[in-house]
């Protein structure tokens, strides 16, 4: 049994502000059922001074996930949008009287949902936002470089194990461990140069010196070692982090729908032979945001492994598009 604080227990057994908010001004959705926790945060904002006058949540998850969501709503009601943006996952954990280390990702989920709800309120397109959030690092849990960077900065993380505890990245198949190490090395190096982390504590990617992580390395490592990347550093959303001196570069233009569908088709074509070998097939039906509906044919329809099969397709598509794509069966088919 986890050693939850009395406040965590209170917010789990008596959650505040549960439910649906009619006509919300901002909605933030993070996580997924496959990941084991998911949170939908809805906020109502008074137009005069951009003050959050109401907030509601719905959460799928464990005790601390529900408690973190409940605490988050209590913390942000009454705050202006600018004030709410200063709320970090550390604040949520602190409000709850602390969380077990393995459960810190629940507080990160809360902070990410708040960020998404505010972005939604401000009318920032979710898709463009996702593109900005950097490369997908952990395919199992759909964790981007941007999320990793924020969690590392806010919580001063310096080991891969704590990054996993705070974000879940690397907590399943662990094939992304090397990528996590690279991001961790880069972000820690930035933090050292900004004077917010002692250099002796910083994580060094493959034992490299800090200087080696400057963005002047070979192309092979250039993508991951790009501290100047605008998405990776979001000063306005991480209260503890001072604004970097360098002006952010222009973000890459968001992907067009046509380009996206072409990429999805291409990735699906690549997996079709696997289906056909088993006497089945798969076809693209619809694309809505980052949700892709597919139709399964032949033996795939009743196959007891179809949910695993979809998971495999999901991984391939996420890989092709460089971000988390949810694959669902088209209407009328069992998951």
């Amino acid at each position: 049994m986890w050693n939850y604080s009395e406040t965590v227990k209170d917010h789990f057994f008596n959650p505040r502000n549960v439910g649906v908010l009619e006509n919300p001004d901002g909605v933030g959705e993070v996580g997924s059922i496959a990941c084991g926790d998911a949170l939908k945060l809805m906020i109502k904002v008074a137009p005069t001074e951009n003050r959050i006058v109401d907030a509601r949540f719905q959460t799928f998850g464990c005790g601390s996930a529900i408690a973190s969501s409940s605490a988050l709503t209590e913390m942000i009601i009454g705050k202006t949008i600018d004030e709410a943006l200063t709320v970090t996952n550390q604040d949520i954990a602190g409000y709850l009287g602390g969380l077990p280390p393995e459960k810190m990702h629940c507080s990160v989920m809360g902070a990410e949902a708040l960020r998404a709800a505010i972005a939604n309120f401000r009318g920032e397109a979710v898709e463009a936002d996702d593109d900005e959030d950097g490369a997908l690092v952990c395919k199992c849990f759909g964790i981007t470089e941007g999320l990793l960077t924020r969690a590392i900065r806010t919580n001063a993380l310096t080991t891969v194990e704590t990054v996993t505890a705070y974000t879940k990245a690397g907590g399943s198949c662990a094939t992304c461990r090397d990528k996590i190490e690279m991001v961790l090395g880069d972000v820690n190096a930035e933090m050292v140069s900004e004077g917010i982390l002692e250099s002796t504590k910083a994580f060094r990617y493959r034992g490299r010196g800090l200087a080696d992580t400057a963005p002047t390395t070979t192309p092979a490592t250039a993508r991951a070692t790009a501290p100047a990347r605008p998405a990776a550093v979001r000063p306005s959303h991480t209260a503890a982090a001072p604004t970097p001196a360098s002006a952010p570069a222009k973000p890459a233009p968001p992907m067009t729908m046509v380009k996206k569908i072409a990429l999805i088709q291409e990735a699906l074509e690549a997996v079709r032979p696997t289906f056909q070998r088993d006497g089945g097939d798969v076809e693209l039906v619809d694309v809505e945001g980052d949700t892709v509906s597919v139709q399964l044919f032949g033996t795939c329809v009743d196959c007891s492994m179809s949910s695993f099969t979809l998971h495999m397709v999901q991984e391939k598509l996420s890989e092709a598009l460089g971000r988390f794509i949810r694959v669902v069966p088209a209407d009328g088919q069992a998951a």
Binding site: D37, G61, C62, G63, S64, K103, K168, G171, S172
Partner: peptide, 11 residues
């Protein structure tokens, strides 16, 4: 058999 009871991240 849920992930969260064990401290692992998967069911």
């Amino acid at each position: 058999g849920s992930a969260c009871t064990s401290g692992s991240l998967e069911p």
